[in-house]
Design a protein around this nucleic acid. Sequence first.
RNA 1: GCCCCCGUGGCGGAAUUGGUAGACGCGCCAGACUCAAAAUCUGGUUCCUGCAAGGGAGUGUCUGUUCGAGUCAGACCGGGGGCACCA
Length: 860
Amino acid sequence: MERYNAAVAEARWQEIWDEQKVFEAPDDSDKPKYYVLEMFPYPSGRAHMGHVRNYTLGDVVARYRMARGYNVLHPMGWDAFGMPAENAAIESGVHPAIWTRQNIDHMRAQFKPLGLSVDWGRELATCDPEYYGKEQAIFLELLEIGLAYRKEAWVNWDPVDHTVLANEQVIDGKGWRSGAPVERRKLTHWFFRITEFAADLLDALKGLDRWPEKVRLMQANWIGRSEGARVFFPLEGGVGGEGRKIEVFTTRPDTLFGASFCALAADHPLSLELAGNDPDLAEFIEECRKLGNTAEAIETAEKRGYDTGLTVARPVGEPVSLPLYVANFVLMDYGTGAIFGCPAHDQRDLDFARKYDLPVPPVVIPPGEDAADFSIGDEAYTGEGLLANSDFLDGLSSAEAITRVIAHLEENDLGKGAITYRLRDWGVSRQRYWGAPVPIIHCDKCGVVPVPKDQLPVTLPEDATFDKPGNPLDHHPTWKHVDCPKCGGKATRDTDTLDTFVDSSWYFMRYCSPRDEGILDKKAAAYWLPVDQYIGGVEHAILHLLYSRFFTRALRKLGYVDLDEPFEGLFTQGMVTHVTYKDEDGAWVFPENVEKKPDGSLVRVDNGKTVSKGRLEAMSKSKKNVVDPTPIVEQYGADAVRWFILSDSPPERDLLWSESGIEGAWRFTHRLWRLVLENIELLGDSRPEIAKASEFSASATALRQLTHRTIDGITGDIEAFHINKAVARIYELANALGSRPDGPGAEAALLEATECIVRLTAPMMPHLAEELWAALGHKTLLVQEPWPVADPALLARDVVTMAVQVAGKLRDTIEVELDADREAVESLALASYKVQKAIGDGVVRKVIVVPNRIVNIVVG
RNA sequence: GCCCCCGUGGCGGAAUUGGUAGACGCGCCAGACUCAAAAUCUGGUUCCUGCAAGGGAGUGUCUGUUCGAGUCAGACCGGGGGCACCA
């Protein structure tokens, strides 16, 4: 028997699928639609195993749904804007567009041999003007309805690179690339008003029942809803005019009587106003700004405050004056930028109070403590309890007190119940070249002027230079200089580009009508959306998914789509890991540079140094544990790679890439090939139809039952993303196919099982399955064949094996008819020699019979 | 610090959701084929004890609920992830 030549067969089937356009998805169909999407890749230039895993998982779903009779949309594109392209331009002088194009071509060439069921006709790249021009149109429409706006905001500014840095690009308070200490600067930026949907984005998480609980939780935490109250504290002494007051937010209005000070954020308007004629305060504010916002800075910084000398009045109960501070731990962009400090019941406030010698009156008494002698030491009491020293709240529980005090505040116009979210508006301006230009013109006379829609796209100038720091769009000699569309006078373009998260927030909608002249074709969008199954890494659990949810709501408001949630089902896959090796100097070593000596020790091939096996790590260039998919696919074939990736590890967990694993998978492709061809040989020209067989031997029936259980099991496994279990069932059926049935109906049963294993393998190893389907004599393409259906009659068993326990310990098993009655089972169990031996001279107290499962004999 | 998830053979992992722990694969061991090797096929493989039949232990640790616990509850230990001065 000749060997299966994966390379030849895979190329051939890919060509046939391509020619017959089997993966092209029409925008309307009698079939139900199913939209499968994997997160589109950043074209870094090299495909990695993580991509292979991601797209293989999606492909299994897509091919399965096709077989189940769905009109499947399974597109692919490129998240093509972003910094690496610009860095490449700075480092090697290649233009970002050229660099990106080459990478896309290279990666597409790496993906194609995987045999993915992708409709390549819908391919898009976010750096194409056809794409980002539409994005600019969306921007302008968001501006019209107030979901995009401009405001001044504090940003991390890299003084060397002359650019804004995202928080994650600031390491130890320094720019990740320049190493220069990052400054806090106030810049005017574009924002998307995502906070408008904060409540909805949070509430709607409940309905996303096909999302991982973990992701929903992370989003909920990120949105961060806090319930409490806003409370006004009047400024005393007529400062700033009569009736002036500061507004604070608190989640613990029940502790209001425990207030011993109030504090403002450094950038609070009142702080800035007071700093105007208080140089010391101005200096303090400056220090706060320098502090930065890195984790380390925050952790090590002690609580510090500046006493403004002003006082505020406690708004409830007996009149009490509280000192007003400006404090470094109060955030301007959360709540109202001002707090009241209740040291007894908040750790930060307590630290602050101890430092500045402020009173610490307890007002919430923990259960079991006595109000008379309860006092606070070094730890604030943040739990609930009964109120004391709190006027009309005394004796109430924390919960009751909160309700009561809010009612009191509202009746007397001193404050109101309020909800605050941690979520902030999304700053989208980036001072970079390789992104979608903000389609805005700034005119001295007319102010901010949108680029007229008929002048979109605002394209990037091709002749930008990258040899000096800062934004190439800003230094370009001519690009930004334009006439004002309104008054015709001299004006300049906005030189910022949009955050690349904007690009990825709507690409899944654009796929529905990728060549549409407008933003999108409403009919196509209505047909295809939402995405039925989205698949990608957990690293996007928060931002990308949250921004996409926002964009969907925004486009709904604009009338383009009629849905809130873009992704009906979400699956987050694990990483691909590989062992790491380090030599005696602690340097990472490539696996191919490691040799195993006969005594089992490991050495470097190049210099003979001792190597130790490190822990499993996600594949990364820096740890030298990457495996390039392309040579592996060339060596073993795409099916073997796909099979290995799908077996063993559950898709949501990390996958350990190993050489022995891929070889095992490769062996199975050959084993299945041989098994099926042997069966074909055995059957000769006969193709006995299962429906025509009138009688089946025991072995034929057993094989049929396994076949149908396998169909049923794999169907459920794929739907539940238990792909590793589906793989195990294929192995099980393959093992059974090794020993052929005999007697009446044997040939029909064998053919049925053989055809089924081929059909069930198709989503995972599509080329091999197609090859074997043809070998079985079929003229149709397997990819267009329906999914097999399990016969319920063959799923039911007429005889079951029941376990018999004595005192909870397994002693024997018995064969009984399905649903055999209790007494029969009981007496059969008691008749067992092993059971009797185990009972010995004990007394049978009770016999528990769980039908078709287990018998437990309780012995006293 | 707060929130969440996970601990099962040498390894990756199954276990119908409270009912025969270890499916399936990798690895390893033995056998068959071969002059030999590779490939392939067959069998074995949780641990302890025993020639064997068998017996005992066993799902991170300890306690509990139950006729019965990998599964439920409580405490602890270990690993991973998210958020982090959010009032």
